[in-house]
Each structure stands twice: as C-alpha cells, then as structure tokens.
Simulated assay, not measured.
Amino acid sequence: MAKGKHYYIRKLHRYLGLILGVSFCSGPWGLYFSWNNIDEVHGDQLRKEKRFLPANLNLVSPQVALQELKKTATVDSIKAIQLIEILGVPTYQMSYFTKTEDVKKA
C-alpha cells in the first residue's frame, strides 16, 4: 500500500515542530523570555510618562470651544469634555452626539 501525502505532511509537521521547539527553548531568545520578568520583556517601562499640565495655564472656557465646534458640526448633546495635551498645547477633546450619527470626537 502506497503512503499518501497526509503521512508525509504529518511527518514533516512533527519534525519541524521538534526542531522549532528545541530552538525556541534552548536558543538565546527562549532563555531570555523565560528567565526575565514578563513586564520587562513587554517594555512597558520604556513608555514615555504622561506629563501633568501646569496649574498656571491660561485656558479658555470649554463653552468657547463648544461654540467653535458648533460652527462646523451639528451637536445634539455632549458626552464628555476632556483637557488633553497635543504637541505641548493644551486642547479640549469633546465627544458628542449628532442627531443622525453616533459619538464623534473633536
């Protein structure tokens, strides 16, 4: 009886799995990832910390920003207003609803 292609695929899969498994476990990356703390492996400590905005900022009222938004969009209701920093400039981020669409951000 002739051996089918499924037999050879199973054999190839078995040996490739064995070769790759051994290389991952015994190679330098396998040792690095298994012996180090997972939080250090993720690189979370390399992220830039969020800066706080100084208290002596001269800010406009959110009402002024909302009036500017109403000039360009039809605002039905406000979901949230948040003060964020974009390229060093304090900016209001507004999530709002329109009558025909879902939440928008401006």
Score class of each variant (00 low, 15 high):
G30L: 03
K70D: 10
Y7G: 06
A106T: 06
A106Y: 04
W35V: 14
S26Y: 14
N56E: 11
T100D: 14
G30F: 03
L31E: 01
Y96W: 15
I9V: 07
A106H: 04
Q93N: 12
E85F: 10
N37L: 07
L66W: 01
I84W: 03
F33W: 13
A73S: 14
C25Y: 10
V89D: 12
V89I: 14
A73N: 07
R47D: 00
F52N: 07
D102M: 06
G88V: 05
E40Y: 09
I78S: 07
T91W: 07
P54W: 02
E68H: 04
D39N: 08
Y8H: 04
A2H: 14
K70C: 00
R51G: 09
A2L: 12
P62N: 02
N58C: 09
S61N: 08
V22T: 04
E101I: 03
I78Y: 05
I38S: 08
R10I: 03
L57T: 03
R14S: 02
I81W: 11
K50N: 09
V64N: 06
N56P: 01
Q45M: 01
R51Y: 03
Y32M: 12
H13V: 10
L87V: 00
Q63N: 04
I9H: 06
K11F: 12
Y8L: 03
L16Y: 09
S26I: 12
L53V: 03
V89Q: 13
T98S: 15
H6N: 13
K70Y: 05
P62H: 03
F24H: 11
V22I: 14
C25E: 01
E101Q: 14
E68N: 10
L12M: 09
L31P: 00
A55Y: 12
N37M: 11
P62D: 02
D76M: 10
Y8E: 07
Q45N: 10
A106F: 04
V75A: 01
M94F: 12
W35C: 02
A2F: 13
E85V: 10
T72D: 05
S95V: 07
C25F: 11
P54G: 02
V41R: 04
P28W: 10
G30Y: 03
P90S: 02
K5V: 00
K99L: 08
Q45F: 15
V75K: 00
E49I: 04
I86T: 12
W29T: 07
Y15L: 08
D102E: 00
K3F: 07
L59N: 02
K50W: 10
D39F: 11
I84C: 05
R51L: 15
K3H: 07
S61W: 00
L20G: 01
A55F: 07
V103M: 13
Q82V: 07
D39M: 05
T72S: 14
G30H: 02
D76H: 15
P62F: 05
W35R: 13
L53E: 11
M94A: 05
K11G: 01
G4A: 09
L83R: 06
F97N: 05
P90L: 06
I78Q: 04
T72G: 00
E85D: 09
I86Q: 11
S23E: 08
K71N: 12
N36W: 05
N56Y: 08
Y8N: 08
I86M: 11
N37T: 06
T74H: 13
K104D: 04
E85Y: 08
E85L: 11
